[in-house]
Amino acid sequence: MVEHGGRARGVMPLRAEPLPLRFQIGARTLGSIERRLVRVSLSLDAIIAGAQPALPPLGRGDDGYLVTSLPAAGLDALLRGAGGMIGYVRQRYPRHYADLTIGFAAYQAALSGNTRSGLKRKTKRVIELSGGALDVRRFRTAAELGDFHAVARGISQRTYQERLLGGGLPDDAAFVRAMTEQAAADQVRAWLLYVAGEPAAYLYCPIAGGTVRYDHVGHDPAFNDLSPGGVLMLEAMRDLYAEPGLRRFDFTEGDGQHKRSFATAGVACVDLLLLRPTLANRATIAALEAFDRGALWAKRAVARLGLERVARRVRR
């Protein structure tokens, strides 16, 4: 998330663009409705400070805004000042982060006992399969990041995030150029984990103002039983705690077990749709609300019946 000069700290207003509002269960998209929206995101610093986003003017054909990671404490104030626009909270979650100033020993102590024991067991198994040593490779310079990208793309192509969500490690020219520029400015860190000589997991993290951002992560599903992403995450955190000048690790928008396991704190946030009160937009919100309510009911039913493992297979 990027700061924009002249506006609220940590806010980056963009021009409106067609954005799909997805009817989604897990990784599977069942359908979508497209609206022209200005996406407004807040940086972790702005969220912790409780900043309110400054919403840029809408064009004639624009439908509204998608405000992501809005601090929940500021929701009512934003709605009151929305000038008759209609709001719908699509998602609630903590914006997870880890304090990188406390030292690695204190960080490990802050993890749950189950997380620590599980990581110890998985790491031991990975070491055994890798001939007695943990094979983590680290990348920082522009030349090194080129090597990282080639290998990580191979892993990314096999992940469900890329196959089903289009959320893998990008390979377009703009991303590669930005990666190279960030590396030249010493503003990116990346890691690969190998298991028995095979690339198993990657992690790519830009750095801005002392905040390390959890931008791209993935692992080869062939290694699912080893939890290679968790093993690699702990080693990356070990490296970051040893590096001076870093303040926080930002797990970015959305919730998830992995983020909850490795974070030390979080701020309650919402993703808010804020739309002009047209008939089409009212119908859009009604459809999203009905779908989200049904998905929540189904999730609770699955948990009540103990079918979580089956549901995970269906979602992917």
Rank of each mutant, 00 (worst) to 15 (best):
G84L: 00
G84T: 04
G87H: 07
G87M: 06
V89G: 06
R90N: 06
Q91T: 07
Y93E: 05
P94R: 10
P94D: 08
R95T: 02
Y97Q: 03
A98L: 05
A98R: 08
D99Y: 08
D99S: 04
I102K: 15
I102S: 07
I102Q: 13
G103T: 03
G103C: 06
F104V: 03
S112A: 06
G113N: 13
G113F: 04
G113I: 00
G113H: 12
T115P: 02
R116L: 01
R116N: 06
S117L: 10
K120M: 00
K120Q: 12
R121L: 01
R121P: 06
K122V: 00
T123P: 02
R125S: 05
V126F: 04
I127L: 02
I127P: 03
I127R: 15
E128Y: 06
L129H: 12
L129N: 10
S130A: 02
S130C: 03
S130Y: 09
G131S: 07
G131M: 03
G132C: 02
G132R: 10
A133P: 01
L134Q: 12
V136P: 13
R137K: 10
R138L: 09
R138Q: 11
F139T: 02
R140D: 13
A142V: 00
A143S: 15
E144C: 01
G146V: 03
G146Y: 13
G146W: 12
D147M: 03
D147V: 07
F148C: 04
H149Y: 12
H149S: 06
V151Y: 14
R153F: 09
G154R: 13
I155E: 14
I155N: 10
S156E: 13
Q157A: 12
Q157K: 12
Q157H: 12
Q157N: 12
R158S: 08
Y160H: 13
Y160M: 12
Y160T: 10
E162A: 09
E162F: 02
R163Q: 15
R163I: 00
L164W: 11
L164C: 08
L165P: 10
G168A: 04
G168W: 10
L169N: 10
P170K: 00
P170E: 09
D171Y: 11
D172T: 04
D172Y: 10
D172F: 08
D172R: 12
A174M: 09
A174F: 11
A174S: 14
F175C: 02
R177F: 09
A178N: 14
M179V: 01
M179W: 10
M179I: 01
T180N: 13
T180G: 05
T180K: 13
E181I: 02
A183F: 09
A183L: 01
A184W: 11
A185E: 15
A185C: 05
A185Y: 11
D186F: 06
V188F: 07
R189D: 14
A190H: 12
W191L: 00
L192N: 08
L193T: 04
Y194I: 00
Y194V: 00
G197R: 07
